[in-house]
Structures are given as C-alpha cells and as structure tokens.
C-alpha cells in the first residue's frame, strides 16, 4: 500500500469515529430536549451527520452513487425542518403549560 492510500484509509476510519461521536452527542441533545425546538435542531444536525457518513461510505466503497442519496437526504431533512418549524408555529408553546384555565398563571410567572 502506498503511503497516500494508507493515509486515506486511516482518515476514513478517523472520520467515521468522529462522526459517530457527533451522532451520539446529537442524539443525547434530542433525547434530553428540553424544548421542542431543541429536538428539531438536533434532528437537523443528525441529518448533517448522516450526510457526512454517506460521504465517507461513498469514498470507502468507491460507489459514488451515494452522492444522490446524500442530496436526497439533505432535501428531505430541509423539508422536515421546515415542516417542524411550521408545526411549532401552529401548535404554540406547550412545555410547562398547565391544563386549560390555568395558563395565565404560568405566563405571569415566566
């Protein structure tokens, strides 16, 4: 193996390890919240990490058709984030909201 091929193989592995760490950290934020926009942001970030994964796998296998998958995933991720944002707008803030009749109390307190 030539040194440049060795370097490429090693950096693929490093990239995969780093991406896995990023993925797990993001999952932690998605699970922990604490609010809905935080989770949506985490999901958006997961899509970015997944695109990174696809790029590394594409290079590792030499199967460059993965580019199309990455673009499609990016499109879906963008549309999902936009749809989630519209959902947040339509639904309103629900964290820390008490049953009907007691909402004003919460708003006055915060």
């Amino acid at each position: 193996m030539r040194p440049d091929e060795l370097f490429l193989a090693a950096s693929e592995l490093i990239a995969l390890a780093l991406l896995s760490a990023a993925f797990l950290l993001t999952v932690y934020r998605v699970v922990r919240g604490p609010t809905l926009p935080d989770r949506i942001l985490g999901l958006d970030m997961l899509v970015a990490a997944a695109i990174g994964f696809i790029a590394v796998i594409g290079i590792r296998t030499g199967y460059t058709l993965y580019v199309d998958i990455a673009i499609a995933l990016g499109l879906v991720g963008f549309l999902a984030t936009v749809a989630f944002a519209r959902f947040v707008l339509a639904r309103g803030k629900t964290e820390g909201v008490l049953p009907p009749g007691r909402e004003r109390e919460v708003r006055d307190r915060t």
Binding site: L18, L19, A21, A22, A49, G52
Partner: peptide
Amino acid sequence: SAFAVVAA
C-alpha cells in the same frame, strides 16, 4: 468530521 463533532 471534526467540525461535525464541534457542532455536536
């Protein structure tokens, strides 16, 4: 991937 980790 380093930037991805930093973002996370």
